[in-house]
Design a protein around this nucleic acid. Structure first.
Lengths: 346, 346
DNA sequence: GTGAAAGCGCTAACAA
DNA sequence: TTGTTAGCGCTTTCAC
């Protein structure tokens, strides 16, 4: 077992001072060529690596950034993480990840664990529960201590900081328009309850599209799904709603779902009921994940570019940390989406 | 903007010494009740939090552990991460995650970034490329410096350390046996190339099951999929193989797939070819992820308990860090799987 | 060309 | 009861 090398040990071993070693390792011309070479050779031999904790303490910056996400097992967030990781690493930063699991308490605790020096700044996508409570004091607190935060995806007006978001409303409008362009006018919307900003914005986009095409809104064609339910329950709710629609003779010829799970659940039940996709029924889903690609027919989706979003978020935070950006203005970046047309639309 | 509080500032403000403040905050009886209360009140008011970097430097331990995984966008690893996060947080540890993206270089770099003091130990699932090269010097190096590593899932004999793994071979054997018990004897195996230990072990389990039931092995019924290919290519390869089988009049009445993607790809093509699952064809898949639940029929799967595995991994590492475990013996833990029977088997 | 010393924030042994 | 000091590993200024 090789013991961990430190400047001190090298200095003692080579019988020079610590500062000489430090300089020699930086190839500082103050130090004679010979000394430099000896020290460097010795350091290499014993695999010396500067202790990053000591450096952090000295420099008052850790070169690590904290990423707070609501969920890992979620394709979009996984993509975002990957994007963040990549650009952070490229710029010499480490990422520590905290998962709030959609809980306010866990979000707060996670951030508290990191805020005391172990992290230079945060990237956070706010937990559902936090959104519900509308309690953002932990975020504001951290900002007021001078630590930068970049909010992404689940963004909120009340907090004054940099933001990166998907233009959910506009994307939803475009997706709905696509369905309308395909001749569909009775579009079933599968969305979340309104307190989740994302679902609300997508719902707005849907409504806008109907409106600008002079299509009357039919409340029966809007299903707001409850939160935190099992897959089975989700499928049952969607299935029941669709069956009711059919039983009540309320026609629909397209579905716009705010996530893949709703879309596939609807697809499965539709097939069971003998509806042909896309002939009888077009489907577009938000979130271009794995489910869309393995569904049959493959789903047309709104691609959220999680990777790019992650990259943007990390870039924004690091730029601010490295003061490459005007100190007293906050920026909001909108990451574009695009529609990936597959087999569930015509 | 509230400035960050330190012992020093509190001391100066309250006109006492730093050590008095430090003791007072720990409620040390050395310090008079009054002083303690004043200090504590002041600290609370200004929201003092000890700087964790300073603590790390002082204690020579960071209370953070590094998790190195090959992929984030992978249900199993996401589950493992969640498990690790949870138990680590419960025990007061932070997790930093490095994603190797299946690349040897990224694995090495990631670990090097963390090894210099920012982490007390590692949990790693080895990248495919590393497995291919069989180059484990980075792992051995770290271990020889006295830093503990727990290997999980992608485990390797050559490295001497704690390990947590799924008993892939036995699980595959049981899954295959399940198919045989259902009366199937011509079982198509969809697996990976052998250099990936996981695929190899699962293949062995499959072979064992056939063997112990006196079923002759038919090489045509073993498809070893190449690595790193697109979903489309994957589906094409599987589709082509199945079509060839049918064209050559080679019968099969069941499929055992070592992951969900292969299973669903096979399911999709089978449906297209008019095969009824599970009547004509039973399917069992490894990896109980989202695809299995949304597929129709829902897939019977080998559930890997990623969450528990993650918890075990974190526990094992932290126990070793806190010396709750015999210092010079390494342990290997096998995490059980179970078969979740859904609609793709009878 | 080399080294001593201060300081980053904290703890703990020791001194007063 | 309170304060001084050394030390964790490193950088950097300044003195020799």
């Amino acid at each position: 077992m090789k013991p961990k090398m430190t400047l001190k040990k090298i200095a003692r071993e080579l019988d020079v001072s610590i500062s000489t070693v430090s300089k020699a390792l930086k190839d500082n011309k103050d130090v004679s060529k010979e000394t430099r070479e000896t020290v460097q050779a010795f350091a290499k031999l014993y695999n010396y690596r500067p202790n990053s904790i000591a450096l952090s303490l000295k420099n008052q910056r850790t070169k690590t950034i904290g990423l707070i996400i609501p969920e890992i097992t979620h394709h979009f967030f996984a993509k975002v993480m990957t994007g963040v990781e990549q650009t952070a690493n490229d710029r010499g930063y480490t990422v520590v990840i905290g998962v709030s699991n959609e809980s306010f308490a866990k979000e707060v605790i996670n951030m508290e664990m990191m805020v005391n020096g172990s992290v230079d700044g945060f990237m956070v996508s706010i937990a559902k529960e936090t959104l519900l409570k509308r309690d953002y004091h932990h975020l504001k607190e951290i900002i007021s201590q001078g630590m930068p935060i970049v909010l992404f995806d689940r963004v909120v007006e009340e907090v004054d900081c940099d933001k990166v978001m998907v233009n959910d409303r506009e994307s939803a409008r475009m997706a709905t328009q696509k369905l309308i362009d395909g001749g569909r006018r009775k579009i079933l919307l599968l969305t979340t309850l309104d307190y989740l900003g994302i679902g609300r914005e997508r719902t707005k986009g849907y409504l806008e599209a109907l409106d600008s095409n002079a299509i009357t809104i039919n409340e029966d064609l809007i299903l707001k799904m409850p939160d935190n339910i099992t897959i089975e329950r989700q499928e049952r709710v969607i299935g029941q709603h669709i069956k009711n629609l059919i039983a009540s003779d309320i026609h629909f010829d397209a579905i716009f779902a705010v996530n893949e799970m709703y879309a596939v659940a609807a697809l499965n039940i539709s097939r069971k009921l003998g509806l042909k996709v896309p002939d009888d029924l077009s489907i577009i889903s938000f979130s271009n994940g794995i489910l869309s690609k393995y569904a049959r027919p493959k789903l047309t989706t709104v691609n959220q570019y999680g990777l790019q979003l992650g990259a943007s978020v990390a870039t924004m935070l690091i730029d601010r940390l490295e003061e490459k950006v005007d100190e007293d203005t906050f920026y909001t970046k909108i990451v574009k989406t695009n529609l990936i047309e597959r087999e569930s639309t015509i």
